[in-house]
Nucleic acid binder design. Structure first.
Lengths: 148, 148
DNA sequence: ATAGGTGCAAAGCATTTGCCGCGGT
DNA sequence: ACCGCGGCAAATGCTTTGCACCTAT
């Protein structure tokens, strides 16, 4: 059966080749924020006749069509996640590189207000927190957010 | 007379070569967020015997010593600004690339709280807004923020 | 004197692209 | 059949580095 991202591609009228279907599946199934290298190795496992150039071309295409979002968590490689994944931001554990997602709807509004005050319409924004796990951490309900 | 950044270098016990003095001066005098290429050309104008490799090495050194902050405003090149420039964030005009600085002290606290809630100490963060100038913009007191 | 800085050119790394044969629609 | 896609390797753009010489301290 078609993966969620493959279905989005079809909706947009993109040509569905074997390679794209595999890459779409990998991305649909990923629960983390893989970089191109990782997408490539996962895709290769499903179908070895895929080149990394195609992965680069495909993630770019998907990004241009608003299906994927490109992220920069430091480390010099772009990382990707499906956009239809709900509004959230990222907290990167600087010791392990682990990425934790969190939502803060109120933030959005505050940022738009700041932009408006400066005479701008907010088009997009980037917000990443870099933190160190506290030694005395008690696991709370919110801390359950799945690492990605 | 020594530039502000040159003085910081001396305080830290860094060897002050002619090239470093020139680069320090360029950075001290810059009111924008230059990338390495721009720092290089400004430095070359003051003293042509400077290589771009030295600029790369120097901004890196200054960053490691906390004198410069590296920024990423998109476009694939790192940009730099002195750290002792007050806490602020950046709004990038997506049409012109112009960078506008704004401060929002309250933000800091909110972000630290979010991190704490997730069990982390906030070490650093990244916040950039990307916006489009509003056609009907009336220039207000806050809009005077100098583009950088 | 000597540890460290500099210039140059080459290497690195992530990403893009030209070319040409191949495959979806 | 036609146009776009994919593989490969070469190109690109930013940044780093090896090496031999030079300079602050």
């Amino acid at each position: 059966m078609e993966s969620r991202i493959a279905r989005l591609c079809i909706e947009k009228g993109l040509k569905m080749t074997g390679q794209r279907r595999v890459i779409a599946r990998v991305l649909s199934d990923s629960e983390d924020h893989p970089n191109v290298e990782v997408v490539y190795s996962r895709a290769s496992a499903l179908d070895p006749r895929i080149s990394i150039a195609t992965v680069y071309r495909t993630v770019r295409l998907l990004e241009e069509h608003g299906i994927l979002a490109r992220r920069d968590f430091g480390g010099g490689r772009a990382r990707y996640e499906p956009t239809e994944h709900g509004k959230h931001h990222h907290l990167i554990d600087i010791e392990t590189g682990r990425v934790i997602e969190f939502a803060d709807p109120e933030h959005e509004r505050v940022l738009a207000e700041i932009a408006a005050r400066l005479g701008f319409d907010l088009v997009s924004h980037r917000l990443e927190l870099f933190g160190r796990r506290r030694a005395d951490t008690v696991r709370t309900a919110t801390a359950k957010a799945r690492g990605r």
